[in-house]
């Protein structure tokens, strides 16, 4: 069963690489809150994932800074929780 992983930790938090390691093939990753700093954290390559637009904008980051990262709003995050029966919050 694909899992939706939602992470709010900054990329230099130990939970962040732990979350990336836990991602299975069909899983989906969403960056929220401080986790969106990963868009400008070059030492940690990101898999294709989503980032919460409000949190990206709040930190004055560019929405197009990393290819493979799609911007979503809260409505989009709700849709992802609809399509994933399992949600993991990191």
């Amino acid at each position: 069963m694909p899992t939706l992983h939602i992470i709010n930790k900054a990329p230099d938090h130990p939970r962040f690489p732990a979350c990336l390691r836990a991602l299975a093939e069909d899983d989906t990753l969403v960056l929220i809150e401080n986790a969106v700093m990963a868009l400008v954290f070059e030492s940690l390559p990101l898999p294709p994932c989503y980032a919460l637009r409000a949190d990206v904008n709040a930190r004055a980051l560019s929405e197009s800074s990393v290819t493979g990262v799609k911007m979503i709003g809260y409505a989009g995050l709700v849709v992802l929780t609809e399509t994933h029966q399992r949600v993991m919050n990191w």
Partner: peptide, 19 residues
């Protein structure tokens, strides 16, 4: 933390989404 803020935005969005 941002938790109460994020949770409120999500709560409003899930209700708007018909849940």
């Amino acid at each position: 933390s941002q938790a109460p803020q994020s949770a409120l935005a999500f709560a409003k969005a899930l209700i708007s989404g018909g849940h």
